[in-house]
Design a protein around this nucleic acid. Structure first.
Lengths: 137, 137
DNA sequence: GGGTAGAATAGACTCTGTCTAAACTCGGAC
DNA sequence: GTCCGAGTTTAGACAGAGTCTATTCTACCC
């Protein structure tokens, strides 16, 4: 546990994030293993674990982590933002019936041609979402 | 104007939508020419044109149109849903700084390999979004 | 110890979207 | 013409995600 904590601290520090107790709690939850969580799911898990971290801090921290490259935001469900702990390029399958989000590894999907970008803009991220639904009987 | 109205009516009818005055107003706005609008933008334009269509009707109508294939929903901005009047397969460039949404024609972007879908699911839609930002000086 | 900058907090607030219950519309039956 | 009923529209209440603000807390530096 100590080692895990220390490596999380190092990981925050490496991304220029000062490790506070609240940030470490959230990091422990999001960065321990690959996951896709929305802010309210993070809140719920913190509450369940008996933590008293406030809503504003959760939002601030998730934003901070995203801007520092520790997390990636995924706009797949218009009603809420998901945070993805995998920050290397990859894509997603989104089940519209269950809300489940599955990673697609980069070698499973290939985008072979790209359009010209509008003048004065830089590409920031390429996001491919395959929307699926449960099969109807 | 008369001809335009009639063709909108036909277009609604062809998609199994009973043409009411409110639906025709919204159709005139969304289907006249290719556009990307959010529900509140539709509301604002209706208000500006002096229409008194209610919020609930705007949401109901946009949902109805989407479910009947007259419009397509685009989840590109987590804070609101956009409706796209182009329903044929195509992709988008989204400017995160300005909120501007630009169409990418199917021959400008090619997805050449696709992953296996989870068992029990059917693909419903493939959405590619290229997120761009204005160039920093 | 005092000062200060950054971080955390509660709670009010905004905004998008949904729900509900009532009113309206319009076609068909009588 | 009147009645009825299904579908549509409406206002306003409501819900949920996310933001803002003003205050409090913490930690570090002098």
């Amino acid at each position: 546990m100590k080692a895990r904590q220390e490596s999380l601290e190092q990981s925050l520090a490496r991304h220029g994030v000062k490790p506070t107790p609240q940030r470490l709690e959230i990091a422990a939850l999001m960065l321990r293993e690959p996951c896709h969580l929305s802010a309210d799911q993070v809140m719920a898990q913190l509450r369940e674990a008996g933590s008293g971290v406030s809503k504003a801090t959760v939002y601030n921290t998730l934003h901070l982590f995203s801007s520092q490259g520790l997390l990636r935001e995924i706009a797949v469900d218009p009603s809420r933002l998901f945070y993805d702990s995998t920050t290397t390029p990859h894509h997603h399958i989104y089940n519209e019936d269950t809300g489940e989000l599955v990673d697609v590894l980069p070698d499973e999907l290939e985008v072979s041609r790209l359009p010209q970008l509008p003048a004065g803009t830089d590409a920031h991220c390429l996001e491919v979402v395959i929307r699926v639904r449960n099969q109807r009987k």
